[in-house]
């Protein structure tokens, strides 16, 4: 077979999923050889391949639907969320940086401090862009589209229902901003976990955690925050409570609560110097932490309860 045909086929199947490549390759080979006929000259081959269109366009015909990282249905919402989160998270990242300088002033010139503040804001732009894009791309890959809900008489009547089943955009946007800030704070703590400390005029800051042990938990915390971020975006897309959204949201709340309880009760993470400074015995400290875990569980239960009330409200009235 002619080398140009081989290269054309190879380039076409490169755009397809691995499982269909071998099949399409075999089929395209047979079809192209039929089209060019026996002992074709270079010109015939070129004309045939030009008539088939570019490898990318031919592959898109085989795929049947266009590929998007973020589809046209979701893009306006993606852009809105991205701008909103950037608008709040970037100044906050700069503020975190300035607070860091105030709490523990580094021995550097003012110009360098300003440069570092700008760098922190720049990092926030990259991070927000990365997380928001990944979240929307995942949602789009799962085909959770804006118009995916069933449109029938029940859905039509639901438009007239009281606001009980509507997910308020303001509250979800508030969650998104809070979660984005949480994500930034966790990223900041990855390299500056010593700043999470007890400060006093008489002593040097006493870190709350042992930095080396804390890092894997910070990564896990980022995953948990990201899950909540995903759920918030799904709520913003759907804007109405349904059984599936309730199950997803409650599951993530349970996972989040379980994670924080697990994290807080890892006793080897805490800095013993802190107990010594606070003159706390370990049983007393553990008692305080367990109370805090109880509070986390209570908050989780309240969140799930409130969501159940909103999602199932129609049946109750």
């Amino acid at each position: 077979m002619d080398d140009l045909i081989k290269r054309y086929i190879a380039e076409t199947i490169h755009h397809l999923s691995v499982k269909e490549r071998a099949d399409v390759q075999q089929e395209l080979e047979a079809n192209i050889l039929d089209m060019v006929g026996e002992s074709p000259d270079e010109e015939t081959i070129e004309e045939t391949l030009l008539a088939l269109g570019s490898p990318a366009s031919l592959a898109s015909q085989y795929r049947g639907r266009p590929r998007h990282l973020i589809g046209p249905d979701t893009f306006p919402l993606y852009w809105k969320v991205l701008c909103l989160v950037l608008l709040i998270a970037v100044p906050l990242a700069a503020l975190f940086s300035i607070i860091g300088f105030i709490i523990s002033p580094p021995a550097i010139a003012l110009v360098e401090m300003v440069a570092r503040t700008f760098a922190a804001a720049g990092s926030a732009v990259v991070l927000v862009f990365f997380w928001v894009t990944i979240a929307f791309a995942l949602i789009d890959a799962q085909q959770i589209s804006v118009g995916a809900e069933v449109w029938d008489r029940a859905a039509l009547r639901a438009l007239q229902e009281k606001a009980g089943k509507t997910i308020k955009a303001n509250s979800v946007i508030g969650d998104l901003v809070g979660l984005a800030i949480g994500m930034l704070a966790l990223t900041f703590l990855m390299t500056n976990s010593d700043l999470l400390a007890l400060y006093s005029k008489e002593h040097a800051p006493i870190p709350l955690f042992i930095a080396v042990r804390l890092r894997p938990y910070l990564i896990a915390a980022m995953v948990v925050v990201f899950l909540s971020f995903l759920v918030a975006i799904i709520k913003l897309i759907r804007r109405r409570w349904s059984a599936s959204i309730l199950v997803i949201s409650s599951s993530v709340t349970i996972i989040t609560t379980a994670f924080w309880v697990f994290f807080l009760t890892r006793w080897n993470l805490y800095n013993p110097d802190l107990f010594a400074f606070l003159t706390l015995t370990q049983p007393r400290w553990q008692h305080i932490i367990r109370s805090l875990c109880g509070f986390c569980i209570l908050m989780g239960a309240i969140t799930i309860g409130t969501e159940c009330y909103h999602a199932l409200w129609k049946e109750r009235v």
Partner: peptide
């Protein structure tokens, strides 16, 4: 041809 072959598949 680039419409027919993918259509058959």
């Amino acid at each position: 041809a680039n419409t027919l072959y993918p259509m058959l598949r």
